[in-house]
Amino acid sequence: MTLKRPSLVRYLTLLVVYIFVVCATAQAQSNADLGQYRLGSGDVVKITVFGQEDLSVQTRLSNIGAINYPFLGDINLVGLTVNEVESKIDTGLRGDYLVNPSVFVTVLEYRPFFIDGAVNRPGGYPYQPGLSVNKAAALAGGFTERASREKIIIVRKITGVETTIEAAASDVILPGDIVTVQERFF
């Protein structure tokens, strides 16, 4: 039995659409995770005010998390989302300094994550959006022979409190996470 040409074209079209939907869904989930992302020390942010070059700033957040912003002085950014920072700067500049400021904040570089335990090269690595425990282990030289892919712990700060999460190898990690891959007994 041979496939007719229209059937093959239709099949390939459906396959391409399916792959596109799967990729778009994964990207949307990654963006949703980072949409509520709270800034922390070590993040590099860029603040741009449209048409106002002297108000555009690029900086790495220190341990204190405060930056000195023109006209507004010290602003604490740690714990805020990108949208909250935009709103805070917009509110501060509106009226006294600018009539209708257009403020855009982007995270240029996320703070690193750390991986230790049963991986070949434990340490700190630059975070990349969409990073899973498997991908993090790959960055760290892969799992060791004795690594347990079922016993993985993530330590994450949630609203300022360190929380321990039991994770699977496919779980997503976030900037600042500490991932520990435990060893198996056999």
Rank of each mutant, 00 (worst) to 15 (best):
R38T: 09
P70Y: 00
G51W: 04
I75V: 13
L34K: 07
I67F: 13
E53D: 10
L61N: 11
G40P: 01
L77S: 05
S56K: 13
R60Y: 11
N76W: 08
I75R: 15
A66M: 05
F50R: 05
V57M: 06
L72R: 03
D43R: 09
I64K: 11
I75M: 14
Y69G: 03
R60V: 10
N76M: 12
Q36M: 13
S56A: 08
D33L: 10
G51S: 10
L39A: 05
D54P: 02
Q36K: 13
N68Q: 15
Q58R: 14
V45T: 15
D33V: 11
G65Q: 06
L72H: 01
R38N: 08
L77T: 07
G65F: 01
G73M: 13
I67P: 03
K46N: 11
L72Q: 02
D54C: 08
I64P: 12
G42P: 03
N68M: 11
N63M: 01
N76P: 10
T59K: 09
N68R: 14
D33R: 07
F50I: 14
G65T: 12
G73E: 09
N63C: 14
G35E: 10
Y37L: 02
T48D: 09
I75P: 11
I47V: 14
A66N: 15
I47P: 00
L61K: 02
K46A: 11
D33A: 09
G73H: 00
L39W: 09
T48W: 12
T59L: 02
I64V: 12
G65I: 03
